[in-house]
């Protein structure tokens, strides 16, 4: 059994701060043990209130960032209130205790030879992509980072401020045209798409299912590698409950677990319709 299993036990983390950045989108910062510093962009954590009865199941969240602040390691989670669980989390304040499991799942694959990183983010799907952009900027110096960021309105553009500091360019779309391109982020991406085709280009995306499905269709004749981060309801986060199934096309098809075989997948391997 060895002694390593201890690091995988659920840890107790203290809320450092929480604030609402744009409407119904919260940035939660928690103090975590130092081993969280090894987290990879694309990995996620399972979170629940320490000792709390509700929500009953932990909720999965992509990691938004991990950083050192003095002697502490801080984990950031950026989420949107979408249901009872996230509504309860939105009331967390400094000093509250959480039970956290992770980092879990596989991270994005970033080839060192990559020269252009293209991010296509829909709504709160920005969270894992922002962490990826940050890591690329830290480790790959002058890599070209282009982000396509979509939201409903100018007021609901989540994560913009940070991306503008990291990225070479941030291209914005809003459903109502109140800022940037009017329409879906995939429509904005489509206009530039032919630029992104070489071996040194990587595309990464996260957002609503319909958006990822439409991106998959757009890329059908484009050879660029594209990885997506998928979301699915899950109970355990480490492969036991089989709740988070997604149908893939490779290996003869069938279901795999978002938590363990993912949450990062090649966009061409995902069967979005089933």
């Amino acid at each position: 059994m060895g002694g390593f299993w201890i690091v995988k036990r659920d840890i107790c983390a203290t809320v450092f701060s929480q604030r609402e950045t744009v409407e119904r989108h919260f940035l939660l910062t928690v103090r975590v043990p130092a081993h969280f510093g090894n987290a990879l962009p694309g990995q996620f954590v399972m979170v629940r209130l320490k000792g709390g009865a509700a929500p009953f199941l932990s909720r999965p969240f992509s990691i938004y960032s991990v950083s050192s602040r003095g002697n502490d390691t801080c984990l950031e989670i950026f989420y949107q209130v979408v249901g009872e669980g996230t509504d309860i989390f939105s009331k967390l304040a400094e000093g509250d205790l959480l039970s956290i499991r992770g980092p879990l799942g596989k991270g994005f694959d970033i080839p060192p030879a990559c020269k252009t990183v293209v991010l296509v983010a829909g709504g709160i799907g920005v969270a894992p992509l922002s962490f990826l952009a940050q890591r690329c900027r830290e480790e790959m110096g002058d890599v070209e980072l282009i982000c396509y960021l979509g939201a409903g309105t100018a007021e609901s553009l989540a994560g913009l401020e940070r991306l503008e500091k990291i990225c070479t360019a941030v291209k914005i779309s809003t459903d109502d045209g109140s800022r940037g391109y009017r329409g879906l982020v995939t429509g904005l991406f489509e206009k530039d798409m032919d630029r992104y085709a070489g071996d040194t280009v990587r595309i990464y995306s996260c957002g609503p299912r319909a958006m990822l499905k439409s991106l998959q269709w757009l890329l059908k004749d484009n050879p660029a590698v594209c990885q997506v981060s998928l979301e699915e309801r899950m109970a355990c986060g480490f492969g036991a409950c089989l709740g988070c199934a997604v149908r893939i096309r490779s290996n003869g098809g069938g279901f795999v677990r978002v938590c363990t075989e993912g949450p990062i997948f090649d966009i061409r391997d995902v069967e979005f319709s089933g």
């Binding site: 109970a235 709740g243 988070c244 149908r247 279901f255």
Partner: peptide, 17 residues
């Protein structure tokens, strides 16, 4: 291969699968 997703849902003090 099991059932298509969604496969689970939290309910009061429990879950459906």
């Amino acid at each position: 291969e099991g059932n298509p997703p969604p496969r689970i849902m939290e309910t009061a003090s429990g879950m459906l699968n």
